[in-house]
Design a protein around this nucleic acid. Sequence first.
DNA 1: GAACCGTGGTA
DNA 2: TTACCAAGGTT
Length: 331
Amino acid sequence: MQNHLNALYTWYLAHARDLPWRRQTDPYAVWISEVILQQTRVNQGLAYYYAFLERFPTVEALAAADEQAVLKAWEGLGYYSRARNLQAAARQLMAAYGGVFPRSWAQLVTLKGVGPYTARAIAAFAFGERTAVLDGNVFRVLARLWADDTPIDSARARAHFQPLADELVAHAPDPALHNNAVMELGATLCTVHNPACLYCPLAAACRAHALRNPAAYPVKGKRRESKERHFAFYLWQTPQGVAWVQRSAGFWKGLYVLPHLELPEPPAEPPLLQEQHVFTHFRMHLHVYKGVPAQVPPDLYWIKPGEWDNYPLPKAMHKVLGGLQARNLLV
DNA sequence: GAACCGTGGTA
DNA sequence: TTACCAAGGTT
């Protein structure tokens, strides 16, 4: 196996993408990049990586920042709890570690928003700890390598694959190089669809390839039944312009929902939903899963006209506002 | 432990 | 078009 792994490292050094977070070992930059890349493709996260480090260059800066500013920097990326957790963790780091990253994944995993993958990634990439990262790419590569039919989305998947992954990194000359190489392989050659086995440095060792059936791996459990969910938002016409009142508070919490903001002049009582005041409302279609429909809390909030840009808004909101603007419905 | 969280790309 | 998927983590 070691010969094959050496072939993998050689391949990586020759063919890997040149990505900015791979060019340094600053734990802060590694951390930010790993969180940005959670469930997010490189091309989507790249610009955010540069901008976020520019805007919040250090743990101290991030810890001291206004939460709305952090969310604003995250605007459009999705999974906004990542941004809130980043700042929470930055404050944890200041309080518990004097702003200096602990070096072991076991300590890192106690940080908010830092799970088993990200903790090991920081430990390996920033501090050279000999530990194996386990993400979607690694799951796929390992499952194919050994034709392992353990469902990778099962509860026991991580417990099953982590020791196997750790065994691979055990004798690697460079843990960071090893982890990067396995992930790069999964991201560029050992892909979900149409894997490029012809060019794969591990093909000679790969059980799934020997079986001529890489598509059979990794095994995944039953997909959840998907169901449509509707969210209603309401727009009010006011003498000053358009005030946006939204329901289903708690969804996208903190993003454009106002409880986290200081309202200059909060209305004494929110306007009642009266049909003649509602001039438009829209539905959002989200991919949602089988289960209870969204609860719509009674709380109503509003944003003053002309202040849209000050708020971090999800992409879906921007699209709606853009449409309204085009129709001259926003003052 | 299952359900939940966003967005953009792909077949 | 629909469904799936991507450097996961939290509740």
